[in-house]
Amino acid sequence: MRTDFAFVGVMLLVVFGAVAVVPVLNGLLGPKKPNAAKQATYECGMETVGDAWVQFRVQYYLFALIFVLFDVGGVLLFPFALAYNGVAIWSVLVVMLFAGTLLAGLFYAWRKGVLTWD
């Protein structure tokens, strides 16, 4: 397995190197005429008002939380799916109960209105 992943490691390094060349090349080939207006932060053509502060809603965090629930659930379901063929019916029932727990979490969040708007 280590040798299998060696390809991934080599690919990571090679592609990183190949892609990192591109902005460098662009920097060499493109014109360089910086001025204050070009380097100012973009705000639909107006002057920026205040620092880059964003009204961060708590909905983002709650969506990420539900995602963590299903992510970990999925990671636990994958090995069981691998072993599914040789496993008895009661194991299937146990895992069905587990998947039902995940679904219950989603329905709770749904009913509490957490899944509305972004």
């Binding site: 709650l62 939380l65 659930g73 636990l76 146990v94 587990f98 727990t101 979490g105 709770y108 969040a109």
Partner: peptide, 16 residues
């Protein structure tokens, strides 16, 4: 497994 599922559920309910 079932316990960890319950734990995840409790975490989600608590955060909400």
């Amino acid at each position: 497994l079932l316990l960890s599922g319950a734990l995840l559920l409790v975490g989600v309910i608590g955060s909400i």
